[in-house]
Design a protein around this nucleic acid. Structure first.
Lengths: 208, 208
DNA sequence: CGTTTCATGTAATTGGTTACATGATTCT
DNA sequence: AGAATCATGTAACCAATTACATGAAACG
């Protein structure tokens, strides 16, 4: 039930329409808590009915600008302080590790090396972002910096782990498996330079 | 659609009934890919209908022992080698970080410190497990060791990040926020000593 | 005037969770 | 005899995804 809290969180900053919120989900929250258009509109309706939000203004194309109510702020605060984050379990990447013995050592090695490459690419993108951002003292900037740092640490950890794991497989196989290019991605996405809001966090990935 | 592949993976080792598989989900895969009883039985039916599994034997209480078919093995292999793991996005813990500015510095500090404590507890449990296991050369043991190592690295990384983030909040607040006991858990679950199969992985957690 | 952007919604489907329902076998 | 375990299934519900549907306003 975190979508509602994500919406309350975004609206605690300032009022916005469903359309505005959708864009903020795309730019800021996509990798932390993605949401689709239908979901956003649906949940906004429920939140308004429940008294957590109210339609503060109506605009041009049937635009409804939602504002958080006292009740909504209270609920957001309660969620942040009185409930524990549900830690997420499902990781397809780790599920695969579990069945790696179904592959030849080379195939397993390739999988892990590719994972390492992907993590490295992600890490690089984050570093680019980190440099390109002018960090101010606004709250979003502060939170964004925390999340970005998490992303950097996560991707670094994951790459190292995957390289270590690949080496384990290689050692056990008794063969040299590392080829010149192990299936790594030669062309890597360039680090995005523009960012609205705190895209930063959008660029961070909890699983990778 | 990874549940089906988890089932195929488990059955690639040896035939089993829905009931057996459920237990293996609980002991080995719970933190990587949890599944409920209804889901397991439902999916087994679909997989059998699709020709990926077959009922190899029928036992006492209507027990149906499923065995993987050639087609099932091929699908498992295809999944492992030809598809990329979908990286997971939703992290309630990180979503909260995004809205930490809605809290007082002390409350934010407390949240992050508690997260650090939880990670530390998890890490300790994993280390206990690591010591208590006699590692042999069986494939499950090898895979389990890879996953356990991931868990160790993840929890260590997360704890460090959370402590760093808490310190950031403290520094910005201009106050000393760290109390003698910051809301940390004084009583920590003891590390489980018994483990079936590769519980190891069951003890590893992708998010916190 | 045509395209893009803004803006809202509904419907169908999938994957997952919780709860309900049932009964046979084994163990003490 | 009674409890625990083995064993399978169905139904209701919820959250999320994809696709469909519509139209007003702004921009060029």
């Amino acid at each position: 039930m975190s979508l509602r809290h994500a919406l309350l969180g975004l609206l605690s900053d300032h009022p916005a329409s469903g359309y505005d919120l959708m864009r903020r989900f795309e730019t800021s929250l996509s990798n932390v808590w993605p949401a689709t258009q239908s979901q956003v509109y649906g949940e906004l309706g429920k939140l308004a009915k429940g008294g957590f939000l109210e339609v503060a203004a109506e605009g041009p194309r049937g635009r409804k600008e939602y504002a958080i109510t006292e009740e909504g702020l209270a609920e957001l605060h309660r969620w942040l302080t009185e409930t524990q984050p549900e830690r997420m379990r499902r990781s397809e990447a780790m599920l695969r590790v579990f069945f790696l013995d179904q592959l030849t050592p080379l195939e397993a090695f390739t999988y892990l090396s590719t994972e390492a490459e992907r993590a490295a690419g992600r890490h690089e993108a984050l570093e680019g972002l980190n440099k390109s951002v002018e960090w101010d003292d606004e709250p979003l900037s502060v939170n964004g910096r925390l999340a970005l740092e998490y992303g950097l640490r996560f991707t670094a950890m994951y790459e190292e782990w995957a390289r270590w794991a690949a080496a384990q497989i290689e050692a056990r196989s008794g063969q040299r498996l590392a080829s010149s290019e192990t299936g790594g991605a030669p062309d890597r996405e360039p680090a995005p330079q523009v960012l609205l809001d705190s895209q930063i966090v959008g660029e961070q990935s909890p699983d990778l």
